[in-house]
Design a protein around this nucleic acid. Structure first.
Length: 545
DNA sequence: CTAGGGTTAG
């Protein structure tokens, strides 16, 4: 039998494994196929191993992939690429780069062997891993390798470089790669747009967006995300509408991107339309779409609608549970929120730090101090979550509101991070409830040190003095505000009324119904005689109109 | 035999 015939037969044998590996429904099935591969002496076949590595990639089993790869004595560029791809796709970025380095080392150390050069299928993943790790000097080194291996005009590689530099916040080099491209495609433009969006520089993003010749749905979505990131939700909605006007049908990702804007603006009608649209197009199978819809309904005040959508979801992840738990807590339904958390544990979904923020705030709102303190321990001891500053905020809230002000102060001093203004604010308002001037002064000192320009802090201090009947101190604080020339930052909120999103800025009388609003507010205030001090300024403002 | 971009909870 000639060599050519033998090669043909081996190839034939290898090909038979392609459908077998492709049809594997999980890693255990792949292991069975692997057993056959070994039995037929094909465990060194780069072709078959590459197919199996792709399968590991699909099911996210990095360990098995590593095992498969490490037993090949002579990997070729296909198997190297497959293992790097698997590692990058499964967030093992450091390992991906280690394997890449092995290709380069091999070239130096085994010059007698068949050389292996990284190619256009290697670099996009290596560059991606490098950008996730934010490893700048390595990124520049790899950029050099791209030149060395003659890939500086491969568009996928160049686009990966653009993406990498924008992730580093290095728009200069991103532009440089872009300008050197012979024909930048949509991905290249989108890379730059997203780079500016990430930095919150939406004017620059907008210039590129208007200028680019080949806008895709990804470009529109990048703009929506960017506007949401800097809080320009109205602009995000505008872009979404314009996208539809030019005839682009929203997909799952763009729906997920625009719904937070609806939630923040209270644009319920748009949100409802997206819900219907998602139903028509089968998007409700997508957990992310449902998660953002639940969030939107909760933020727009439709907690029952949020709950029924949550109940109907085909698959709930940790975000779904956290959103619903937090939504219930924000609606004052503390017991329902805590119950749902217990259901989540029964459903064997592991909560994370954000889940506990919802639970803790529910406990605070319901006055379940001890329950809340218990959960603070549960998150640390049972789930090994390192509390972040927001969790300490909840802890200070729980201790403070239950009147344990010394313990709250003690907890703050034991925080592993520097307490910020929100922490001191929380303590301060607890001092006000429990009329503790001593600790209030401590909190106030820290607060004014951090935010000397924030007028609200002085108002809060004045209110505490007022509640304690120290009228002289009250007028001293007011004088202080005036002498420092501190301006009040106007409060602002938005709500949808008859399909139009209305923005309210405190003290603003330009709306046709401002009079009614202020009048209603006054009625409400009259019912709140105990908090007269706090509302004093509001009434003062209102009476001008 | 293989490749790249946009997405959700505080």
């Amino acid at each position: 039998m000639g060599t050519r015939t033998a090669q043909f037969l081996v190839r034939e044998l290898e090909n038979r494994f392609v459908p077998a590996v492709r049809n594997c429904a999980g890693i255990s099935e792949l292991k069975k196929v692997h057993a056959h591969v070994v039995k037929l002496s094909l465990s060194q076949s780069n072709f078959v191993i590459t197919k199996m590595l792709d399968c590991c990639d699909k099911f996210g089993d990095v360990n098995y992939a590593t095992l498969l790869f490490e037993q090949i004595v002579e990997p070729n560029v296909f198997s190297y690429n497959a293992i790097i791809r698997t590692l990058t796709h499964n967030q093992e970025h450091y390992l991906a780069i280690r394997v890449f380095k092995r290709i380069l080392m091999r070239e130096e150390r085994f010059s007698d062997k068949v050389p292996i050069f990284p190619n256009e299928f290697t670099f996009p993943f290596v560059i991606k891993s490098c950008s996730v790790l934010l490893w700048r000097c390595l990124g520049e080194e790899i950029h050099g390798q791209v030149w060395k291996f003659g890939l500086k005009s491969n568009s996928v590689t160049e686009n990966a470089l653009i993406d990498m530099y924008t992730k580093f916040g290095d728009l200069r080099n991103a532009h440089k790669v872009f300008e050197e491209m012979t024909e930048p495609d949509a991905v290249s433009w989108n890379g730059l747009i997203f780079g500016y969006a990430r930095l919150g520089q939406m004017e620059s993003a907008r210039v590129l967006f208007d200028e680019m010749p080949c806008r895709t749905i990804v470009s529109w979505t990048a703009m929506i995300t960017g506007y949401c990131r800097i809080g320009c939700y109205g602009d995000a909605l505008d872009i979404f509408r314009r996208m539809q006007m030019v005839g682009i049908e929203p997909d799952e990702v763009s729906v997920i991107a625009v719904l937070p804007a609806c939630a923040q603006l209270g644009a319920l009608e748009v949100g409802k339309w997206i819900h219907m649209y998602s139903g028509r197009n089968g998007f409700l199978q997508n957990t992310g779409v449902c998660n953002t819809l639940v969030e939107m309904y909760a933020k727009c005040g439709c907690i029952d609608e949020a709950m029924s959508l949550f109940d109907q979801m085909v698959e709930k992840d940790v975000i779904s549970w956290s959103t619903m738990i937090g939504g219930l807590a924000n609606h004052g339904k503390a017991h329902a929120s805590i119950e749902l958390f217990q259901k989540m544990q029964k459903a064997k979904v592991t909560p994370n730090g954000i889940t506990f923020l919802g639970v803790l705030s529910a406990c605070t709102h319901a006055g379940l101090w001890n329950e809340g303190l218990k959960y603070f321990d549960v998150l640390r001891v049972e789930y090994h979550i390192a509390p972040e500053i927001e969790h300490y905020g909840c802890l200070v809230d729980l201790l403070g509101r239950s009147g344990q002000l010394e313990q709250a102060l003690d907890a703050i001093s034991k925080m592993p991070m520097k307490p910020d203004s929100r922490i001191w604010n929380s303590l301060l308002s607890s001092c006000r409830i429990h009329r503790n001037l001593e600790i209030a002064v401590v909190a106030m000192e820290h607060l004014l040190e951090q935010e000397p320009e924030e007028s609200g802090n002085y108002v809060l201090l004045a209110n505490i003095y007022a509640e304690l009947g120290k009228w002289e101190s009250v007028s001293n604080v007011r004088k202080l505000i005036r002498s420092k020339g501190i301006k009040k930052t106007p409060g602002c909120s938005m709500i949808e009324v008859e399909n139009v999103v209305q923005e309210f800025v405190s003290g603003d009388d330009s709306k046709p119904f401002s009079r009614d609003v202020f009048w209603t507010l006054e009625v409400l205030v009259l019912h709140q005689t105990r908090t007269n001090d706090l509302m004093e300024d509001v009434i003062e403002d209102a009476s001008q109109f």
